[in-house]
Design a protein around this nucleic acid. Structure first.
Lengths: 153, 153
DNA sequence: CTTGACCTTCCCATCATGGGAAGCCTTATC
DNA sequence: GATAAGGCTTCCCATGATGGGAAGGTCAAG
């Protein structure tokens, strides 16, 4: 199997397969005499594992750990669960952050006429014109300084 | 006001202030004879606008548009609302995607003992061992090929 | 033997942000 | 006035995961 076939069989782009190899996420593929990479069913299985993990939002570094555990017949399932729970926490935080943004924006958008006139509560909010007459409290959006490191898929 | 003071007054890092200038998001600051950037209250106001917009998750290109509208006394509020609504859509999609991931992971994590034994439904799922006995449907996570372009804050 | 579809490597772009180096400027202290 | 500390300048690099594309080699079918 060459890289195109492995890509088709796993749903991982050829570009990404090469990248995963380059960062040591998967073992270096064998080569034909002419230099083409060669893949086995095992490799495709591994690639599907990575693909599925990415679909669940795991970072590549987490996937590196998961792959190690997967191939370790003596792993404690607690180690796997730990990684999963941490990721769930990350997702929970990120979701809450996005929802806070969405809520604020929805309040502002509801208050905006959305017609030809120039007055606009959205711009008023952004420019800090908080002439304290708001009722819904649309102003406080994201936890002001909660650094958000990791990102999404 | 020099860049450090403008940073403190606006909540935007000096690094980012320079960056915003370099991409033309804000006008080039004036300079002292020795080359230091000089900022006015107006500039700080603008920086706060950007900061607040970022907190609401707007991309810098959107903020560029919003700034244009802000400074255009004849803007139709519909133009602003349009940008906001599009962003709300993006947020909605992203939230749904993350929630799907979270739901799947939670099902899997609940099924995992999390002890010293090696058997682990999480790894089973990732490796495609879907011996179809699942009840909660933990398997289908993200809309398989829904490209997600934009990211978070 | 040519053509087209594949493969290879290498470089660049994304998006918003931070880190750090090398060197100049300013301010306060001795 | 000298010196030290800290702020400013520019420039380069890194992040994380991915795609785009160029230049050139290879394979298989016609």
């Amino acid at each position: 199997m060459n890289i195109g076939q492995a890509s088709g069989a796993s749903g991982v782009s050829a570009k990404m397969i090469r990248y995963y190899e380059s960062i040591g996420l998967m073992p270096a593929a064998g080569r034909t005499q002419s230099g083409y990479r060669v893949y086995s069913e095992r490799d495709v299985h591994l690639l599907r594992f990575v693909r599925r993990s990415r679909d669940l939002g795991f970072a590549l570094e987490d996937i590196r750990l998961l792959l190690g555990l997967w191939q370790d017949g003596a792993r404690p399932s607690a180690a796997v669960k730990d990684i999963a729970l941490k990721h769930i926490d990350d997702l929970t935080r990120k979701i809450a952050e996005l929802q806070a943004m969405k809520r604020s924006l929805q309040h502002l958008a509801e208050a905006c006429h959305g017609d030809a006139r120039p007055d606009c509560p959205i711009l008023d909010d952004l420019s800090g014109l908080d002439a304290g007459h708001e009722k819904g409290g649309a102003t406080e959006a994201a936890p002001p300084h909660t650094a958000d490191t990791s990102c999404c898929r």
